[in-house]
Design a protein around this nucleic acid. Sequence first.
RNA 1: GCGCCUGUAGCUCAGUAGGAUAGAGCACCGGCCUUCUAAGCCGGCGGUCGCAGGUUCGACUCCUGCCAGGCGCGCCA
Length: 561
Amino acid sequence: MKQPLEDLLRSTLKHLAGELFPKTALPSTPLLERSRDPAHGDFASHVALTLARPAGKNPRVLAAALIAALPKSELIAKVEIAGPGFINFFLSASAYHAELQRILQAGAAYGRNQLGEGRSAGVEFVSANPTGPLHVGHGRNAALGDCLGRLLQAAGWKVTREFYYNDTGVQIHNLAISVQARARGLAPGSKGWPEEGYRGDYIAEVARAYLAGESVSVEGHTVHGAKNPDDLDAIRTFAVAWLRREQDLDLQAFDVHFDVYFLESSLYTGGQVEATVCELVARGHTYEQDGALWLRTTEFGDDKDRVMRKSDGSYTYFVPDVAYHLSKWQRGYRKAITVLGSDHHGSLARVHAGLQALACGIPAGYPDYLLYQMVTVMRGGQEVKISKRAGDYVTLRELIDEVGRDATRYFLVARKGDSQLTFDIDLARSRSNENPVYYIQYAHARIASVFRQLAEKGLRWDARNGASHLARLSEKHEHALMVSLSRFPELVETAARNLEPHLIAQYLRELANDFHTYYDAHTFIVEDAALRDARLMLVAATRQVLQNGLALLGVSAPESM
RNA sequence: GCGCCUGUAGCUCAGUAGGAUAGAGCACCGGCCUUCUAAGCCGGCGGUCGCAGGUUCGACUCCUGCCAGGCGCGCCA
């Protein structure tokens, strides 16, 4: 709804450019914004204020000239100049009526846009190493990444969800020797227990299954427990598969699914790590010092140079990181997003620098990062310390079991990533009625109930009749609701562009509020068929947008509660 | 010491690429169920947008400097 008006305004301005104001002064930023105060109309433009200085004219004079040049449009009922030179647009009722019809015609597609133009986007998230169950922080990552994927799909991107993990290396070695110790009957802390071992009870479970010769199927292959506690390779393979499967079960319970599992080890076996280093050396961005090979990342905005190959000949983790992100580009992702805990933000500059040093056409900001701050968990009024090795931490599974999938997802995406999140389990559990997700779902359930009631009364909704009597929707609550509905596509666009899923959560709460207010103020199932059908049209459109919005969050839209 | 992030109502947080009188929820006080689900609605209370400068017609928003908190600064991953 905003776009046609924006286009109209911009083309009018282009027409006036050079005559009323210098051509170069035309801003590329949006010219329109939603008015906060209904007294200011539906949309407001401050373009006259912006142009006043370069034009050397009074903004109100500019505004008047702009309005005079504006072509007639069915969308616009009235245009006013206000204050120092704001232009306020009052949309016609028919503009909103047309939008209602658009919502019902588009259905699940309402709100989508073509920002991505069908290009390929890779969203990498969770990417937890298979050394233990997923915890709350992974939950935030999973919720953000999955919603982002949904948002980008809605914005016309072809999205691939990718999970990157390491199946070798130090942490995995610790995992293997921990399972081995358990298999030999050792308990954490006892004599012979490895210093860096993982102490959680789940390790004992892995050891038990290994000794019992159980089999594990994950990512399309099956691993059998070799039973032999001395075979560390077999233990490692089994443990990795076991924990990967556990994670997959958690993620499935969270309704999060991946298209690609990418193993860090494949970058070594496939030669990409070696190739990346050779390329960087060939580009002349490296030097040797103290027996190590360094990359001059400072030439590309990093604050210090980085070691790529240690003096013992092995690579630092930073090299596969670069090779991995290079592979994203090579695999066709024109947009790549890495969802990452902000405690790892130090690696951003390095990866960006490494990719730029390769000078292979990757744009400067590639990949995008969606960083999120730590989640602190409160239980019994106390913070639950997260210590993976001690095995004492809140798992994602526990949260889902206690709070429910919908509420957990909603909570974890409802806040901006860059603010810290306190997840109070007791509150979420014992006072779940106050949870905003129920408020939104309740609006949807109420609508479903309205249509059930209608059927029970032997009535049916005549959509065509409703469509021809939309002029009957003249109450202020109806107008407010129509305004909110029409904002949805703008929200999807902004949220996708800025990688901000929380905007959708925020919006849905407001939309639900508009609906509940309307519901309490007016009865929908009235005698007057014209009014009834028109109101049900608005209600049906609300249901559709609630569904579409909840779908973006991966939260269900229940028919009853 | 350096870098990134944060600081908005008693608490938890929004504030959509600088716009008009800063908004929700919770908490607290007071109203609303013989009528489509009260998991709801309405009203009230509550603010020096961390502090100080600067840019601008206009700053919660941009810049600088301070203060406070979180995270990160290894030939660890």
